[in-house]
Simulated scan of single mutants.
Amino acid sequence: MTTIDTRMSVEFSCAGTKLAAWHYPGSNGACVVMTGGLGVTKEPATDRFGQAFHAAGFSVLAFDHRGIGASDGMPRQVQTMRGQAADWEAAIGFAADLPEVDPARIAAWGFSTSAGHVVRLAGRRRGLAAVIAQSPNVDGPTATRNAARYQRPVAMLRMTGRGLVDVIAGLVGRPARLIPLGGAPGEVAVLTTPDGVLADTALNPGGSHPDWLQAVAARSTFGVMAFRPGREAARITCPALFVVCDDDRSVLPGPGLRAAADAPSGELVRLRGGHYAPFLDEHDVAVRTEVEFLQRHLCTE
């Protein structure tokens, strides 16, 4: 039986909102809680890594944030940092109650913006056994300034305008105004960086996840701009693995390297390639490194 055949659909609640997840029951008592970056649902973000963790004996809980994928939450495609942080707390609490899971052996895994969330979680709460921050966005202002270098001025003005209009639309109960997650310079999109345009190739090869809506509400970008979870790195008390890509042009490697150095129990792995290298040429290295890290810190004799 393959790993994907052994997972099951589950749901849990966060402040009355039902969140959808995949649960892969494991055999070693430890659990990895996972989700994707901004606007990225659990299937494209976590399937390949989650299956590898499960094959190594770990339970896995991979969930969709509110407002996207199979989770409830209105308005759709609106992503806020506060809401996502609450979703993470609810997911970890749910994982702790799974029958095969030891609550003292739960790890959090995130990619890009969700990697920033696991850094902030580990800095603000106790009880996590380990965290993995892959291609981490730990400094939103730096990432935003960098992204602006690869965008054309007129497109930047259009995106800002669309975001402001979307904020007003939200205040009067209108549907969200969506923008694509990735695009070419001159297009209105969250990322127009050289590696940002590889999102579909890396996460959705051959259109394997046709239900993934690769867009978010324009207002969602404002929260990312002010997101600075790297400030929490020095407060992390559990082992923390930072997987940083040397040629990352979407979030830049520098903030991730500094966060890894600041974390008292931080470990650093540097990969060749851009933001999506862990899903592309460096996938095998990333998986092998992350499984070994989890085994060292979550598995008991």
Rank of each mutant, 00 (worst) to 15 (best):
D5R: 08
R7D: 07
R7P: 02
A15I: 11
K18M: 11
L19I: 02
A20D: 12
A21N: 04
A21V: 11
H23A: 13
H23V: 14
A30F: 05
V32T: 10
L38Q: 04
D47M: 10
R48H: 12
F49N: 02
F49W: 09
F49E: 10
A52Q: 07
G57E: 02
F63S: 08
D64C: 07
D64V: 06
D64L: 04
R66Y: 04
G67E: 08
A70T: 06
D72P: 04
M74Q: 14
T80G: 12
T80M: 04
M81I: 10
M81W: 00
Q84C: 09
A86C: 09
A90S: 07
A91R: 06
I92F: 10
A96V: 12
P103T: 13
A104Q: 12
A104D: 12
I106P: 08
A107K: 00
W109H: 02
A115E: 05
G116W: 06
V118Q: 02
V118I: 04
V118M: 06
R120P: 01
G127T: 01
G127Q: 04
V131R: 01
I132M: 02
Q134L: 03
S135D: 05
P136Y: 02
D139S: 11
R145S: 13
R145H: 13
N146I: 09
A148F: 00
Y150M: 11
P153I: 07
L157Q: 09
R158K: 14
D166R: 10
I168T: 15
L171W: 10
V172P: 09
G173E: 05
G173Q: 10
A176P: 10
A176G: 15
R177C: 04
G182C: 14
G182H: 06
A184E: 00
G186S: 15
G186K: 12
G186T: 02
A189I: 09
V190N: 01
L191S: 15
T192M: 13
T192P: 08
T193A: 11
T193G: 01
D195C: 00
G196E: 00
V197T: 08
A202E: 01
A202S: 13
G207C: 07
G207V: 09
P210L: 05
D211M: 13
Q214E: 05
A215G: 11
V216A: 05
A218C: 04
G223L: 13
A226S: 15
E232G: 09
I236N: 15
C238Q: 01
A240V: 10
F242E: 08
C245W: 02
C245S: 08
V251R: 10
L252Y: 01
G256F: 10
A261Q: 09
S265Q: 14
G266E: 11
L268E: 08
V269L: 06
R270E: 15
R270L: 13
G274A: 03
Y276P: 02
A277E: 12
A277L: 08
P278M: 11
L280V: 05
D284G: 12
D284R: 03
V285E: 07
R288Y: 08
Q295D: 12
L298V: 00
L298A: 05
L298E: 01
T300R: 15
